[in-house]
Simulated assay, not measured.
Amino acid sequence: MTDHYLTISTPGEGLYTEKRSRFLAFAIHVESEEEIKEIVKKYQKNYYDARHVCYAYALGYDGERTRGVDAGEPSGTAGRPILGQIKSKKLTNVLVIVVRYYGGTPLGAANLGRAYQAAALEALSQAVTEEKIVTKKIRVSVPYTDVDAIMKVLREEGAEIFAREYDSREQHLTVTIPLNGVEYLCERLKKFYTVTIHIEDNEE
């Protein structure tokens, strides 16, 4: 199981022209489908006079949630080639929108697909790529008598303190740790019988 992924840290823009049709491309970092819907709506509004506003995205640290939208273009000529460029660069949490202004000359399916592909590639090439670590949040409840020992384990395993809470009997620590280190950290913590561990459901 991988504990890192590639995304973009800055937007990128591209322009491709084919037989007077202009393809304006935008690569944007995204975190959720709700965010994507809002961004697409904004571009549809801003480019209301364009013939097509097509897009594709990949989401999740494993890039498994994907979608390509042809937005009125012939099936498979827009969303699929845009998504293909995202996948070829092994990126995720990325949305690429390509706006087409029709130039008056039909391109044909093959040329159309290549145009969307080229525009998407240009936008992604202009963006800055960033490697991110996939982490899990773990909540650890520790009696005050064991706090020093537990803190030593957390430091040794590369866990970072995200939040602290206190009550009369225990200290409650929320820590983040790279995904591949979760199992071994939990094994070490379970040796302290007074410690309670809760693993959050979602990776970050």
Rank of each mutant, 00 (worst) to 15 (best):
E165N: 06
T92I: 11
S141M: 03
Y193D: 11
N202C: 09
S141P: 02
A123P: 01
T17G: 08
L83I: 06
N93M: 05
H29R: 14
G72W: 01
P178D: 03
N111E: 02
R80T: 14
V128R: 07
A109N: 14
G14Y: 01
S9E: 09
S88W: 10
G84A: 08
E203G: 08
A119Y: 03
H172W: 08
V40A: 06
T176N: 01
A78R: 05
E203L: 14
A50S: 14
E73N: 09
T129K: 13
D148V: 11
G108V: 01
G60Y: 00
I161W: 04
L112V: 05
L154P: 10
T105W: 06
E160L: 00
G68K: 06
G113C: 08
K191F: 07
R20K: 14
H172P: 07
C54H: 07
T77Q: 10
P74C: 11
T135F: 01
G12D: 05
K42Q: 15
A71L: 09
K89Q: 15
I138A: 12
A25K: 11
A58L: 03
Y16W: 15
Y57E: 09
E187F: 08
Y43V: 08
D49R: 13
I97T: 10
F26H: 13
V140Q: 03
P106K: 13
Y102H: 06
Y101F: 15
D62V: 00
I177F: 10
G103M: 02
V99G: 01
R67H: 14
T135R: 12
I177P: 07
